[in-house]
């Protein structure tokens, strides 16, 4: 009997070797950190690290919510405009209250509640249109993206909405202050990421998201309340957009039509780079966190070194995103 060498050896062997899909994003992150450290001695300084992390926090908090939406087979393009709108609304309400309540903690608390409630409702609107009216998520959120963007422009009357000067001082600690030398946005991002990871891996909700994203019919036949789970992913994302906005407003103290532009794409990119499947069915929150860090490190490194023009930031991010998707495809199990 003759035996012939075959191409079987080329085929993926489940459970064998290194799993690129898991390690890819981590390796990329490590490479970036090493490269950054070699190129600029300031890269690993406390100031630079906290700066990068604090800037990542807004997109990061949103991207954690986005991970659930995408895992469950959905998509939300409206988060950037939603953040801008919530920021505008928050500033407007707080400014209105200053004369009666004074520029203090109580007004800021009201502002925070406004942001969370507005986020909740914005997410609810997206979710209801998608699950009850059965309109494509892409279309619905493309629509609300335009609506929120134009609403904030209208609220600002085409210009900029600025936070009352006195309030700004009272509010600043939320962005610049912190605990043990770690600023609030970073702590919040950390907390959201940990909670997200737990919900995704350890709760029925996370499992349901993956099942729905894989095959919503199977989920329906398995007694899963598909619409409710989907709706909750959008509501959750909306609330997280509110949280991110609460952290963001004290940074600049203003909102305009240019606030949060392209945030949705950065958040989606971070999710995909982290290994969540764009078509749904599989998601991991820690991956998203790594994805966010990768994206902001690229920008940071370009700013710190003069090898490549920072204007090419977008191009490099684009390459990384495409690479991530190719990696996803390679690691797909053999059929």
């Amino acid at each position: 009997m003759t035996t012939q060498a075959t191409r079987a050896s080329q085929q993926a062997r489940p459970g064998h070797g290194i799993n690129l899909h898991v390690l890819g994003p981590i390796v990329a992150l490590v490479v970036l950190i090493v490269a950054g450290a070699l190129m600029n001695s300031n890269f690993l300084s406390y100031a630079n690290v906290t700066n990068v992390l604090a800037r990542s926090a807004f997109i990061g908090i949103i991207a954690v919510g986005m991970t659930f939406v995408i895992t469950a087979g959905g998509l939300d393009l409206s988060v950037g405009s939603m953040a801008a709108f919530i920021a505008g609304l928050m500033i407007l309400v707080m400014n209105l209250l200053v004369p009666s309540m004074g520029a203090g903690i109580s007004v800021i608390l009201v502002g925070m509640v406004v942001a969370l409630v507005a986020g909740l409702f914005a997410g609810l609107i997206n979710g209801v249109l998608i699950t009850r009216m059965r309109i494509e998520a892409f279309i619905v959120t493309l629509g609300t993206m335009g609506i929120y963007r134009s609403l904030v422009t209208w609220l600002a009357d085409g210009g900029t909405l600025s936070l009352d000067f006195g309030l700004r001082e009272a509010y600043e600690p939320v962005y610049y202050g912190g605990l043990f030398g770690i600023s609030w946005p970073i702590l919040t991002f950390l907390l959201v990421a940990i909670l997200g990871e737990i919900v995704m891996r350890k709760t029925a909700f996370g499992r349901y998201c993956a099942a729905i994203g894989s095959n919503d019919q199977v989920a329906r036949y398995s007694s899963v309340d598909v619409n409710r789970v989907r709706l909750l992913t959008y509501v959750g994302l909306g609330i997280l957009v509110g949280v991110a906005t609460i952290m963001y407003v004290p940074r600049l103290g203003s909102a305009s039509a240019a606030t949060g532009v392209l945030w949705e794409l950065e958040a989606i990119a971070a999710v995909i780079i982290g290994g969540t499947m764009l078509k749904g069915g599989f998601g991991r929150v820690w991956g998203t966190v790594v994805g966010v860090l990768i994206l902001s490190l690229i920008g940071n490194i370009l700013n710190l070194t003069d090898w490549v023009s920072p204007y090419l930031n977008g191009a490099i991010q684009g390459v990384i995103i495409v690479l991530a998707v190719i990696l996803q495809r390679e690691s797909r199990p053999e059929g």
Partner: peptide, 8 residues
């Protein structure tokens, strides 16, 4: 199609 999530 409706019974099992094949990729799980």
């Amino acid at each position: 199609g409706r019974g099992l999530v094949l990729n799980m």
